[in-house]
Design a protein around this nucleic acid. Structure first.
Ligand code: MN
Ligand code: MN
Ligand code: ZN
Ligand code: ZN
Lengths: 152, 152
DNA sequence: CGGATAAAAATAATCGTTATTAATAAATAA
DNA sequence: TTATTTATTAATAACGATTATTTTTATCCG
């Protein structure tokens, strides 16, 4: 994928989220734009701190609370997926804002999206077996990424 | 399953954990016994508070910190599975202390263990596709349990 | 442009959990 | 048995990421 094509994709995503914000009657502020630009550009499921650090480079006065509020707003309009963990840390996916599996490296913290075809099958199995009406799900695999596995 | 058979199963599980504690050189105290009895008897993936409340009925002076420490110890010797959530709440499975999928009712809080055969297949798929060395996983389905679905 | 009001910044509060400390109980040695 | 050591408990303080609150600032619409 060329750098230019990549940039276009990012801009398309940004425009879409901006449109969604206006659609829902929310204001587009420079702070919000800065946060969602970071989310749209990042390939790495960034944490709040990572987003905050990035945004501050071009917007030194922004408050951490504003970053939290903006992310919360993007969650509300279903344009970001939050991966909250039990240790209170969270990572965010601004590209695929719907449930999907993740591979999490416990050594370097990298988070990756695999494409798994047999997940739907699994959901069906769970539904028929228990009578649950499944609304959403969360699937995390933990282990060592390719890089960390080789360095061990 | 008869009530008697149920009691026997619970006692077997308690005995196993007690043996594991001694095996690892930890003392068996009345407080620890009380906590693991609740865990072994519970079918419902209890929370810390739920365990604390149960234990206090027969052990009114026990401290909440002791419950936390005991659970932490049982995690350490791999005899309880912790399901930690992003909202800081945790639920515990004292029956199957290894990773397995869960069905979580978002209305009544009930947590249930389904038997899903196609999970291994999914793990293999993730491994081959990404080069990750998968060590463990976590799979939660969220929705409405059979009871709550009918009451809606 | 105003003026209504949403949003930002700064800061305080929250609340499960963890750490700390002193007291107690169990194990071991003498 | 009694003394000594060590693990465990109970009580309570500290923690820290997130959320709530308050005041100030900026956006949006006519
Ligand atoms: Mn993702
Ligand atoms: Mn379970
Ligand atoms: Zn890694
Ligand atoms: Zn239910």
């Amino acid at each position: 994928m060329s750098a230019k094509h990549q940039d276009l994709e990012i801009q398309t995503r940004i425009d879409h989220i901006l449109a969604r914000l206006r659609e829902e009657g929310f204001r587009v502020t420079p702070q919000r734009l800065a946060v969602l630009e970071v989310l749209a550009a990042s390939e790495n499921h960034p944490s709040v701190e990572a987003i905050y650090d990035q945004v501050r480079r071009r917007f030194s006065t922004i408050s951490l609370a504003t970053v939290y509020k903006t992310i919360s707003l993007l969650k509300e309009i279903h344009e970001v997926l939050e991966l909250g963990f039990a240790d209170r840390s969270s990572r965010y996916d601004g590209h695929k804002p719907y449930p999907h599996p993740h591979l999490i490296c416990t050594r370097c913290g990298r988070i990756q999206d695999p494409e798994l075809s047999s997940l739907e099958e699994l959901t069906r199995e769970a539904t028929t077996q228990t009578g649950f009406e499944i609304v959403t799900h969360r699937l995390d695999f933990f282990g060592l990424c390719n890089d960390c596995r080789c360095e061990e």
